[in-house]
């Protein structure tokens, strides 16, 4: 039997679980952005007619799950596990969504890296024959994140240029042994790195070292190089973070050039006044399950290394003077 582990941090999925169905949903701002055409469902009202953004986020997540199941021609009953994570305290969006779905639930928290953490774990479970099909989903909401991590929406704040705008949306994927759709062939789970960034205005900078570390570790573990991939996608480093990421990777003697794309930097148009770019669980998730999967189905991409990054902190830890740690996980997706 071939080895299932490579190097220090990478695992190989010999049965390569497939994304048999996936769906993305987002708000109007994301719809007007550069990736708008890759999002399956666009809603006009970011509050979804709900009284609070928390309830709206939950609805987005539930909708994404149902759409993904429908695309896979499956139902909740066919799912043996639901793996979900989000940004809200005690991951309430995922928990309440799991309540409504009625699928056995594993709640995860990797901040904005949740989607890749979820896909990686899901693939491990399916590849290990512990489940035939699992549902992986994540969500984020601008208003809900703003009020939890920053300030009230209507407050007089002039945003700094390094600020990022949380993506309002959700994405879900059904992973299964059935051999249709893009395959997940490898995963590299990342270490938590802290380079001493303290300002919550510099999230991209806090996550860039972790992203670079996971990427370089992946190359070393697998013996691959940037040339082996059609695209190296990072989640939500945004303008400032991606610049640092490219610099850090270069110091390890890898050049990414045009192979690299950051969803955070790409998702909004410059005139949308969103600082350095997008962030949030839905940002990386829309990039992977929207952009990458659609391009693969159209045959434009063959092999993609998708890295999602998360900033690990809470408003309390930040106010108590702790620095912001970063994490990054990577998966290899092949058409």
């Amino acid at each position: 039997m071939e080895a299932k582990r490579l190097g220090l941090q990478t695992v190989v999925f010999r049965q390569a679980p497939c994304i048999v169905g996936c769906s993305t949903i987002a708000g109007p701002k994301e719809g007007e952005g550069n990736l708008g055409s890759y999002i399956d469902t666009l809603v006009d009202d970011p509050l979804m007619g709900q009284p609070t953004p928390e309830k709206a986020e939950r609805m987005l997540l539930y909708q994404a799950c149902q759409d993904a199941l429908a695309k896979a021609n499956l139902t909740e009953d066919d799912m043996q596990l639901f793996i979900g994570g989000d940004l809200l305290n005690q991951i309430i969006s995922s928990s309440y969504c799991a309540r409504d779905l009625g699928i056995p639930f594993l709640g995860i928290y990797g901040a904005c890296s949740s989607i890749v953490e979820g896909l990686g774990l899901g693939a491990l479970i399916v590849d290990g024959d512990y489940a035939d099909s699992v549902l992986v989903a994540t969500s984020s909401h601008y208003q809900a994140s703003e009020r939890q991590f920053r300030y009230p929406i209507e407050l007089n704040i002039q945003h700094k240029k390094s600020n990022q705008w949380t993506v309002t949306g959700a994405a879900a994927a059904v992973l299964s042994k059935t051999r249709t759709g893009p395959k997940i062939t490898m995963a590299t789970f990342g270490r938590v790195l802290d380079y001493g960034i303290r300002s919550p205005n510099d999230m991209g900078a806090a996550m860039a070292p972790a992203a670079a570390d996971t990427l370089c570790r992946h190359f070393q573990d697998t013996g691959t190089s940037p040339g082996d991939y059609d695209l190296i996608l990072t989640g939500d480093l945004a303008a400032v973070g991606q610049k640092l990421f490219v610099q850090l990777v270069k110091e390890s003697d890898y050049t990414l050039d045009s192979k690299h794309m950051d969803v955070g930097a790409a998702i909004y148009k410059p005139e949308q006044r969103s600082g350095a770019g997008g962030s949030g669980c839905a940002c990386s998730a829309i990039g992977i399950l929207g952009y990458v999967v659609k391009e693969m189905l159209e045959g434009k991409l063959e092999r993609v290394l998708a890295i999602a990054t998360g900033a690990l902190f809470s408003p309390v830890s930040n106010q108590q003077g702790d620095s912001i740690a970063g994490i990054a996980h990577a998966v290899v997706i092949e058409a």
């Binding site: 390094s162 510099d202 900078a205």
Partner: peptide
């Protein structure tokens, strides 16, 4: 030293505000 060096990198990568306009 690593943190200090990285802080410097971050400082250089962060866009300056339009001070005069602001």
């Amino acid at each position: 030293d690593l943190h200090a060096r990285y802080q410097q990198m971050v400082k250089e990568a962060t866009p300056q505000p339009n001070r005069w306009k602001n």
